[in-house]
Design a protein around this nucleic acid. Sequence first.
DNA 1: ATACGACCTCGAGTGCACTTGAAGTCAAGG
DNA 2: CCTTGACTTCAAGTGCACTCGAGGTCGTAT
Lengths: 134, 134
Amino acid sequence: MSEVPQLRIGEVAKRSGLAASAIRYYESEGLIRKPARRSGQRVYDESVLDQLALIDLAKGAGFTMAEIKKLLSGFARRTPPGERWRQLTTAKLAELDARIAEAERMKTVLRKVMRCHCPTLDDCSRALRKAQPG
Amino acid sequence: MSEVPQLRIGEVAKRSGLAASAIRYYESEGLIRKPARRSGQRVYDESVLDQLALIDLAKGAGFTMAEIKKLLSGFARRTPPGERWRQLTTAKLAELDARIAEAERMKTVLRKVMRCHCPTLDDCSRALRKAQPG
DNA sequence: ATACGACCTCGAGTGCACTTGAAGTCAAGG
DNA sequence: CCTTGACTTCAAGTGCACTCGAGGTCGTAT
């Protein structure tokens, strides 16, 4: 007779570090299973913390809500997790590489403007258009 | 008597590659100078293209509207551009480095989940919490 | 009985950088 | 004269991932 701990949303919030509103939001978006209710209130068992941890991991990997939703329920029922991850991850890796390349490009621009010696911003603007004609 | 070319907003949009609505928006936000009007319509001279190019450069360097506004009008009137750029750029470079580090971190997570062999996502979730206790 | 605290739902608000839509003005062309 | 097309203003909408507020319910403690 081991008693399964029953958690209300406030407790789940505390343990997961999320706001209660976020947990309700995830439920409304179908990212976590709908818990039982006791007199109207949500009653969770501890497995919800695992589900939330998975969502947190996916968020930490840069996935959007829509992508996490797809990960969780956008595949044929018995598609194994590895397969699910790999499909989403391939595109995301490319996206991250693009993001990094973009940031590097920005850094190049920044290093260039830091060396600016124009007397006024208008000169700056004009210099720009002369430097990059077309 | 060289005639200065007078451009209406549609022409500026075409030459700058921006939407007319974006140009009006920049004006309303104080990013570009208010042009003359002829029977209600905006009439630009070519210098607006320089101003827009500068904004485009700044956007390309990752600056927000607010930061560009500060660059253009958030300093004592005779602060030279080089000084303006340097003040904003220092913080932005750090931000970009953080962005890159974050993306690298995400890539690490992704490479890890790609090797997942869990039979179900629930196993995945549970594995997560066991792996990172606290 | 009543106050309290934690929960409930639903709709609206947040920030960013614009875009879209409605309703109106203007000059030129047929 | 009337249409056409480019322009005008102003308010509201977009996407994301939630948060916030109002107004109401529930069980427990006083």
